[in-house]
Design a binder for these strands. Structure first.
Lengths: 197, 197
DNA sequence: GGCTTCCGCTAATGCTCATTAGCACTAAGT
DNA sequence: ACTTAGTGCTAATGAGCATTAGCGGAAGCC
């Protein structure tokens, strides 16, 4: 029984995530979430302070996980090997979006359901993440390894591929996670003009 | 005063589209839409049958437009030139998403706000559109012009790029529509292994 | 002037919700 | 046995919202 998660609040976050993914934040009621964990709506308030707070916890955790994954994917990769760095970053990005499709999906679509103080915080984390990719590409261009007219467009394109994965990917379906990750890593490199995946 | 559009309902659809884009369908109220056209909420019912109907009209019109532009982009392009066909299809796709970002944005995100009979209809149109791209890529692979391990993944990737454009593109911003369209056409070809843009 | 059509308005109506109050039960701990 | 957390429940509360009723005015037509 830790303080943050005492199992019950985790269950609630998980159930809410599933419902937010399927119905959207606005269309999900506290009663729905309660039913998903075997409880009436009002009882949820014993474990979480509000519906908005559920969304906030889900979204900030997601963005932090994503950034953490990104950093650890690049840890130990030579800074002067932009090809390998972009490949690793993209693979981590895509793997995260495949493995945590609900989190990524909600994280992308429900930003507007966040109420001001939190919205800005999440948006800041998000643009920090975007900047990582743009920087990666700019380095590659500067080193003459990439051929991209606009690093910004290329980074948007690569990031958007990940969001797409979160939409259509199904665990246990075909193609599997590894195949998608590999393929999308190749896509990213091709996008910036690297030959032979 | 024509029957379908008598200006007023068009104004309402346009205002609603803007609001749905910014706030989402659920979070937009009839009073909001009314205010945007200078009228109280209930007065809207003189021009449109319901809020849901506004969404339905927006979304079906969007999907039909998209399919129409796709077909006309390919009209007259040699069937045995998959490179040119994919380039044209992608350019039309991206141009549509840049030029009608609100329509495309709402069309992608509010499918779940559509009530059953319509949701299915829109989803059918959408998968018809997806299939066009997959077929295009399969032909290219069969003719040996494309190098794609999975036509399905490649088509998803290309389509997702378009959705991304609808999210971040701003009319009058940089890069402009033509630059984005050209760049994304090149991205699509690179994705399927075509060299030299 | 009287009739009709259009279109806007305010006041219901009838939900659906998030959230709060207040009560009850259980399991420890003492 | 008494108390205290912890957790659930039902019944408010209070707001927001789509939609409907019913009224009134303006414009055109006779």
């Amino acid at each position: 029984m830790g303080r943050t998660g005492s199992t019950r609040s985790e269950e609630i976050l998980t159930a809410a995530l599933e419902l937010f993914t399927r119905l959207g934040y606005e269309a999900t009621t506290m009663a729905d979430i309660g039913a998903a964990v075997g409880v009436r709506g009002p009882s949820l308030y014993r474990h979480v302070p509000s519906k908005q707070d559920i969304l906030v916890r889900i979204m900030t955790r997601t963005m932090e996980d994503l950034l953490r994954t990104h950093r650890s994917a690049l840890a130990g990769v030579a800074p002067d090997d932009p090809v390998e760095r972009l490949r690793r970053a993209t693979e981590a990005h895509v793997r995260y979006h495949a493995r945590h499709r609900r989190e990524a999906f909600v994280g992308n679509r429900e930003i507007r359901s966040l109420v001001p103080p939190h919205r800005e915080r999440v948006l800041t984390l998000r643009s920090e993440y975007e900047r990582c990719f743009r920087d990666l590409i700019e380095v590659g261009v500067r080193l003459g390894r990439f051929d991209a007219a606009s690093a910004r467009l290329a980074s948007y394109a690569i990031l958007d591929l990940g969001m797409g994965v979160a939409v259509w990917f199904r665990e246990g379906g075909e193609p599997g996670e590894d195949a998608v990750v590999w393929q999308y890593g190749q896509f990213a490199l091709r996008l910036v003009g690297v030959r032979s995946g």
